[in-house]
């Protein structure tokens, strides 16, 4: 599975990591909606470091990603704005 960390690059992750990252998905949304900045950022970092544990793709490889992770230093506010764009 290919995971992209925005503003960073793509990683090929194995099944175990893929599941671990997905396990954070709902929790991340919950923290975002609750407005818990610290908890939210901690989860983002956790997801990003799981992706980084995979194998980075060489820059000349042109592959579509299966999942997109936000930039590691995204703030709650930025994440909200990013999601709001979908409604426009």
């Amino acid at each position: 599975m290919i995971v992209r960390v925005m503003a960073e690059g793509q990683y090929r992750v194995d099944e175990a990591r893929w599941r671990q990252i997905h396990a954070l998905d709902d929790e991340l949304l919950k923290e975002l909606e609750a407005g818990h900045e610290a908890e939210f950022r901690r989860l983002v970092e956790q997801a990003v470091s799981l992706a980084r544990g995979g194998e980075p793709l060489a820059p000349d490889q042109l592959v579509a990603s299966d999942l997109i992770l936000p930039p590691p230093d995204i703030t709650l506010d930025e994440a909200r704005r990013f999601l709001a764009e979908a409604d426009r």
Binding site: D26, L28, L29, I68, L83
Partner: peptide
């Protein structure tokens, strides 16, 4: 759908 799935969908639309 969680946060990452939503973000992925939005990103892919871009």
């Amino acid at each position: 759908m969680g946060l990452l799935s939503r973000m992925s969908t939005i990103f892919k639309a871009k």
